[in-house]
Every structure is written in C-alpha cells, then in structure tokens.
C-alpha cells in the first residue's frame, strides 16, 4: 500500500516540469527503494503461497492456523485442497478397495497423504536475548546466551521463537 502511494507520488513529481535536478535525484533514490521493497514483498508472498499449496489440506483441517492467513490466502488454500482431493480421487483412490479410499487413513510404514510441517527438521537459530533452558532430544538442557547461534530441531526452539526470544537465520 505504502509502496503504491509512493509510486503515485513519484509519477506526479516526474511529470512536473518545474522539479529541479535535486528533486529528480531524490525521486530516483525513492524509486530505487520502492523497487527493493516490491522485491521483498513479492518474495514474501510467493513463499507464503508455496507453503499454502504444500500444506493446503493440513491448513484447512487445522482451525488454529486460519487466523494467521489472510482471507484470500485461506480461500486459496480451501480451493486448492479441494482440487487436489478431487484429483487424487479421480485418478487413484476411487479404484481402490473402499477402506483404503480415504486421504486421512494412517497406514503403518507409509507416509501420510496429507503433508504436515516437519517439526523435527533442524533450523539455525540466533538468540536475540538470554533464553531460559529448553530440553534437547538427547535429554540434556540447552541454555542459550544472547548472540548464540545453534542448529537444532525446530520443536526444541518453537516456544522461544513464538516469544520472539530467538530468530531463525
């Protein structure tokens, strides 16, 4: 929103024949920054879209996640999940014995058909402040002083991350 209103201002100023060379120069810098911001926003939106499509069904069936998505994103997730389900049904599932037709069934030794976030996946974290101890998978405790960088499974630092005490790097 900010970027687009700035863009309009820039167009107005550009069109103004009275603007001096110094103004032109400032306009150019402003325009450069707008391009940078646009790039960041575009990357952010694309990454979210990728995650939404990857975890569409999981997102639709997990109400706690809904408030983190915009309305357009949630609509997209729902439509996308429906499409995928329809496709799976049409191509494979409807030809299987009825007890194996569901997408949600938990067959042993088989990965789930609904992609879920892998909280065991290791992440690099940077402690923004001294953190209270957290429990590691091997049973020991990890206390991160400010500035510490660690590689550890996501679920270990999930709470610290939600409290903004650490950041992912």
């Amino acid at each position: 929103m900010c970027a687009s209103s700035q863009s309009d201002d820039v167009q107005l100023l550009r069109a103004d024949p009275d603007s001096s060379e110094e103004e032109h120069f400032r306009i150019m810098l402003v325009q450069t920054e707008i391009e940078r911001v646009k790039f960041v926003i575009r990357s952010y939106t694309r990454t979210r879209l990728y995650k939404i499509e990857k975890y569409a069904r999981y997102i639709v069936s997990t109400p706690e996640l809904h408030e983190k998505l915009s309305k357009a994103e949630l609509d997209h997730a729902q439509r996308y999940a429906r499409l995928v389900e329809y496709h799976f049904n049409q191509t494979v599932l409807q030809s299987l014995p009825s007890e194996q037709r569901s997408l949600d069934d938990n067959a042993h030794f088989m990965p789930s058909m609904v992609t879920q976030p892998d909280k065991l996946r290791p992440v690099f974290v940077h402690a923004r402040q001294a953190c209270p101890p957290v429990r590691l998978p091997d049973g020991s405790a990890l206390t991160m002083p400010k500035g510490q960088i660690s590689l550890t499974p996501y679920y270990v630092v999930e709470q610290l991350l939600l409290r903004n005490e650490v950041e992912l790097v």
Partner: peptide, 23 residues
C-alpha cells in the same frame, strides 16, 4: 549429532553455505 550443534560467531553467508548439508 541429532540434538544440537552450537556455532558461535558463524556468519550469515557461512550458515547459508552449510545449511542444506547440515540440515
């Protein structure tokens, strides 16, 4: 190991370089 690796003073470009393999 499977639980934690502490990497003091590692920099962003270096983290990015080792990320895929270490993860």
């Amino acid at each position: 190991d499977h639980s934690e690796l502490s990497l003091p003073n590692l920099c962003s470009m270096e983290i990015n370089e080792i990320r895929p393999f270490f993860i």
